[in-house]
Simulated scan of single mutants.
Amino acid sequence: MADAPFSIDVDGWIAGLRRVESPNADERPDGELPSLAVIHAISLPPDEFGGDDILRLFTNTLDPHAHPYFAGIAALRVSAHFLIRRDGEAIQFAAAGRRAWHAGVSHWCGRERCNDFSVGIELEGGDAHPFTAAQYATLRQLLGALCARYPITALAAHSDIAPGRKTDPGPYFDWSELAVAGLPPRRF
């Protein structure tokens, strides 16, 4: 995590973050800006941390033979705007001004296709693991920068926008860690 506040350029890239551009992003609908931040959790292989398999998934280079779990997901074309590792490192896959493919079939406050109007933030983790203090610190800093740059009015879990289909970020995500001045509340 950087000590200085994150600075987002006009296209939605954050200076100083590791950039691994995903082909799984495209243009948002005309005039659409992100108004929702979606919190996800991912680990590949499941419940294992620290490798580059998430990066490979988001760049369509995941080897389906490298782990039995990968055979079922290697052909997916998905991404997120950001990944926050267990040590707090943030990696950016798509400019926040573009549409990353993180939400899938989704709805929020009467609107379908949440990818059109949201920013996706993946935390390296899963339903059976608490997140780290370093991840929360980076997440707060990232959300602060995003809220300062875009008209983000709400935070949501992936499970909030895809109920019954997704469970992340899971029961160990502590929403009170985000209850600080300047961040919008989680809404249902």
Rank of each mutant, 00 (worst) to 15 (best):
residue 101 W to G: 02
residue 42 I to Q: 01
residue 48 E to C: 14
residue 110 G to R: 04
residue 34 P to W: 04
residue 128 A to T: 13
residue 125 G to T: 01
residue 157 A to L: 12
residue 169 P to N: 08
residue 62 L to T: 03
residue 170 G to Y: 03
residue 116 D to V: 07
residue 90 A to M: 11
residue 34 P to I: 09
residue 157 A to C: 12
residue 78 V to E: 04
residue 127 D to C: 13
residue 113 R to W: 12
residue 91 I to Y: 07
residue 18 R to H: 11
residue 63 D to S: 05
residue 65 H to S: 14
residue 144 G to K: 14
residue 108 W to R: 07
residue 5 P to W: 03
residue 176 S to N: 12
residue 88 G to T: 08
residue 181 A to P: 06
residue 110 G to M: 04
residue 84 I to P: 03
residue 74 A to T: 04
residue 142 L to V: 07
residue 102 H to E: 04
residue 1 M to N: 13
residue 145 A to I: 07
residue 185 P to T: 09
residue 164 G to Y: 13
residue 179 A to V: 05
residue 96 A to D: 06
residue 183 L to R: 01
residue 85 R to G: 01
residue 13 W to A: 06
residue 89 E to K: 15
residue 99 R to N: 00
residue 137 A to N: 04
residue 120 G to E: 05
residue 142 L to G: 06
residue 188 F to Y: 11
residue 51 G to V: 06
residue 43 S to R: 02
residue 80 A to H: 10
residue 138 T to W: 02
residue 173 F to M: 05
residue 188 F to C: 07
residue 130 P to W: 08
residue 145 A to S: 05
residue 35 S to N: 14
residue 68 P to L: 05
residue 187 R to C: 13
residue 176 S to H: 09
residue 153 T to A: 15
residue 95 A to P: 05
residue 58 F to C: 08
residue 176 S to G: 00
residue 132 T to V: 11
residue 51 G to S: 08
residue 68 P to N: 10
residue 151 P to W: 05
residue 113 R to S: 13
residue 87 D to F: 11
residue 49 F to K: 07
residue 181 A to V: 10
residue 154 A to W: 01
residue 90 A to G: 06
residue 111 R to F: 14
residue 157 A to D: 13
residue 3 D to C: 02
residue 121 I to C: 07
residue 133 A to S: 11
residue 32 E to R: 14
residue 174 D to H: 07
residue 167 T to F: 10
residue 163 P to S: 10
residue 34 P to R: 06
residue 140 R to E: 09
residue 158 H to G: 06
residue 33 L to K: 14
residue 20 V to G: 01
residue 99 R to F: 06
residue 151 P to Y: 03
residue 90 A to L: 11
residue 79 S to L: 08
residue 58 F to S: 04
residue 165 R to L: 15
residue 42 I to C: 07
residue 15 A to R: 12
residue 99 R to E: 07
residue 139 L to Q: 01
residue 133 A to D: 14
residue 63 D to Y: 02
residue 140 R to W: 08
residue 188 F to W: 11
residue 2 A to Y: 00
residue 48 E to D: 12
residue 74 A to N: 00
residue 139 L to I: 02
residue 32 E to W: 13
residue 101 W to P: 02
residue 97 G to F: 10
residue 68 P to G: 07
residue 60 N to P: 05
residue 90 A to Y: 06
residue 25 A to W: 08
residue 111 R to M: 14
residue 54 I to A: 00
residue 171 P to N: 06
